[in-house]
Design a protein around this nucleic acid. Structure first.
Lengths: 129, 129
DNA sequence: GATGGGGGTTCCCATTGCGGGAAGGTCAAG
DNA sequence: CTTGACCTTCCCGCAATGGGAACCCCCATC
């Protein structure tokens, strides 16, 4: 199957697939004319990548997860460590963003939000320290 | 004051300050030798930027907030809108990340995490659709 | 045979917000 | 005069794509 069908069937874009190839996550057989040719097994890899990316695993992690996936002698502990490290990163970022959102919501709640110029949001931003 | 002192006193890096200048957020007087020269008023702008960035406002928003800040005839409604739009974006991203973290934590909780190869995390990633 | 259309390919640029580092000007102290 | 600590501009790299150019391939139709 050509790249656009692989894209359609994997839920990725052709651009993404080529990019993942440059990053060493997938490889494709090449036809005589240079076209990439994907087998069902490749499709499984592409779907794996899509699922991992949907969970926001960086490509580096995806590469490691793929290696473990292919390794019949893997230790599930290795998979788990990658996942939990990623979870920690996600939660740290999410909490930081929630905290920022909270502060801003609080400031916005005290802002008239009308034609008058005074605004606690700007007051906060212009504070000295 | 030169750029490194402005950096120290604003809590930004010299690199950041130059970058903000290319993005039209700050301007600095130039000495005869081409060096940037900052006044106290510039420092206030730099601190404003730092506070806004600490709340993760994109530079485009910071530019708009600065314009409103300088505008004595601003409507606080405009400031509020920028802030609340940003809050919405922050919360959307944060919630998406929390959701991913939750799914992964759930999967990891069912993973032995020992030397055995079977792992619900990989099972999830290799699913068909 | 020529042409058109719809594939494919590679490669470069832009995004966002910086950091690193090179190449070179400037200035004060020793 | 040299050293060192500033400053300047400019280019590269990051992460993960999207957009688009320039060009190749193949098939069908005129």
């Amino acid at each position: 199957m050509n790249i656009s069908e692989a894209a359609r069937r994997s839920g990725l874009s052709a651009k993404m697939i080529r990019h993942y190839e440059t990053q060493g996550l997938v490889t494709a057989r090449r036809l005589e004319n240079g076209y990439r040719d994907y087998a069902e097994a490749d499709l499984a890899v592409l779907r794996f990548i899509r699922h991992a990316r949907a969970l926001a695993f960086p490509l580096d992690d995806v590469r490691r997860l793929l290696a473990l996936w292919r390794d019949r002698n893997r230790a599930s502990a290795d998979v788990r460590r990658i996942a939990l490290d990623h979870v920690a990163a996600l939660e740290a970022k999410a909490e930081a963003m929630q905290a920022m959102a909270h502060s801003l919501r609080h400031l916005a709640a005290h802002c008239h939000g009308d034609g008058r110029p005074d605004c606690p949001i700007l007051n906060e931003l212009e504070k000295n320290p």
